[in-house]
Design a protein around this nucleic acid. Structure first.
Lengths: 92, 92
DNA sequence: ATAACATATAGATAATTGTCAATAGATAAA
DNA sequence: TTTATCTATTGACAATTATCTATATGTTAT
């Protein structure tokens, strides 16, 4: 197992603002500007978090004109669940 | 949802050494000194990581004389899985 | 072309975290 | 009761990360 890669995935969930972002995305795809409205951070900070979330595979971005729409990646989420389950399963 | 508490849980999985520790515990309960043998960190550093792992609920410690035996908490792991699933489920 | 807007990047800084050396506490053995 | 052993705590430091301001890039509308 690649510990570095696994750590990268779960970095998505170890910051409060990123958890808030993921929660906002549960109700469907959202534009960065919409997310920005609801978080007390500046636009570059949001951008930074979105990069980490995308790198983790949990979130994907879709560019449309000047906007970027972000959403939860079902595949990424599924993979994270699989990792977590595997990692915490006691083999007897 | 309490984002701070959720972040605390997933802190367990966002450091390479902690992931290695969890992996070692998959094969069953292990003493701190045994874990220490296989990680390139000092004893206080291990102790620090064990605290974070226990605080996350993923790992529990059992004191027996001078030794502390650590193991994966099935309840903690289950709860983390539940959180992760909930957090990444798109409600439509 | 220019202006307005959305997002990303660069660079700086503050906060957090991972690490170590030194030491304390607790237990077992002599 | 001293000594040895295992783990936790403290304090310092280095590395990483979250944040900001300023600026660049890319897109649409005028």
């Amino acid at each position: 197992m690649d510990e570095r890669k696994t750590a990268l995935i779960f970095k998505a969930f170890c910051d409060e603002n990123r958890i808030r972002i993921i929660e906002m995305l549960r109700s469907g795809e959202k534009c960065a500007c919409k997310l920005l409205e609801e978080l007390n951070v500046t636009q570059p900070t949001l951008s930074h978090h979105m990069k980490i979330l995308c790198d983790s595979g949990i979130v994907t971005g879709r560019k449309e004109g000047k906007w970027t729409h972000y959403s939860i990646s079902p595949e990424g989420a599924e993979y994270a669940c699989k990792c977590l389950k595997e990692l915490t399963t006691i083999d007897s």
